[in-house]
Computed example of a mutant assay.
Amino acid sequence: MSIKSMTGFARAEGTHEGATWHWEARSVNGRGLDIRLRLPSGNEPLEPRVREAVGRHITRGSVSITLAVERSDGGVEIHLNERALQQVMHAADRVRDLTNATPPRVDGLIAIKGVLDIVEPQENQELAAARGEAMLKSLDGALVALVAARSAEGARLAATLAAQLDEIERLVAIVQASPARSREAIEQRLKEQVRRLVDTGNGFDPARLHQEAVLLATRADVEEELQRLGSHIGAARELISEPGAVGRKLDFLAQEFNREANTLCSKASDVEITRAGLALKTVIDQLREQVQNIE
Rank of each mutant, 00 (worst) to 15 (best):
I3A: 07
K4I: 05
M6F: 04
R11I: 08
G14T: 03
T15V: 02
T15G: 10
T20P: 00
T20N: 05
W21P: 03
R26G: 13
S27G: 09
S27Y: 09
N29V: 08
G30H: 15
R31D: 01
G32L: 06
R36Y: 09
R38D: 09
P45I: 03
R49V: 03
V50A: 02
R51P: 05
R51Y: 08
A53P: 05
G55D: 13
G55L: 10
H57A: 15
I58P: 05
T59P: 00
R60S: 14
R71M: 00
V76N: 00
E77M: 10
I78W: 08
L80T: 12
L80I: 15
R83E: 15
R83I: 13
M89D: 07
T99W: 03
T102W: 02
V106T: 11
I112Q: 11
V115E: 00
L116T: 12
D117Y: 05
V119K: 01
E123Q: 15
N124A: 01
E126S: 01
A128W: 03
A130W: 02
L136E: 07
K137M: 13
D140L: 06
D140N: 15
V147I: 04
A148W: 13
S151G: 10
E153Q: 10
E153M: 09
G154Q: 08
G154I: 09
R156K: 15
L161T: 05
A162M: 06
A162W: 02
Q164H: 13
D166C: 04
E167Y: 01
V172H: 11
V172G: 04
V172R: 15
A173S: 15
E184L: 08
E187Q: 12
Q188H: 05
R189T: 06
R189G: 06
L190Q: 14
L190N: 10
L190A: 13
K191I: 08
Q193G: 03
V194N: 01
R195W: 03
D199P: 00
G201K: 08
P206M: 08
Q211C: 01
E212K: 06
V214A: 15
L216D: 10
A220V: 04
V222N: 07
E223G: 12
E223F: 06
G230V: 11
H232Q: 09
A236E: 12
E238Q: 15
L239V: 04
I240V: 15
I240E: 09
P243M: 09
A245R: 00
G247M: 04
G247N: 08
F252C: 03
Q255E: 03
Q255V: 00
Q255D: 01
R259N: 10
E260S: 01
A261Y: 05
A261S: 12
C265D: 01
A268K: 02
A268S: 14
D270K: 10
E272M: 12
E272V: 11
T274G: 12
L280G: 05
K281Q: 12
K281F: 14
I284L: 10
D285M: 06
Q286M: 04
Q286N: 13
L287K: 02
L287E: 02
R288A: 12
E289M: 06
V291N: 00
Q292F: 07
I294S: 03
E295H: 07
E295W: 06
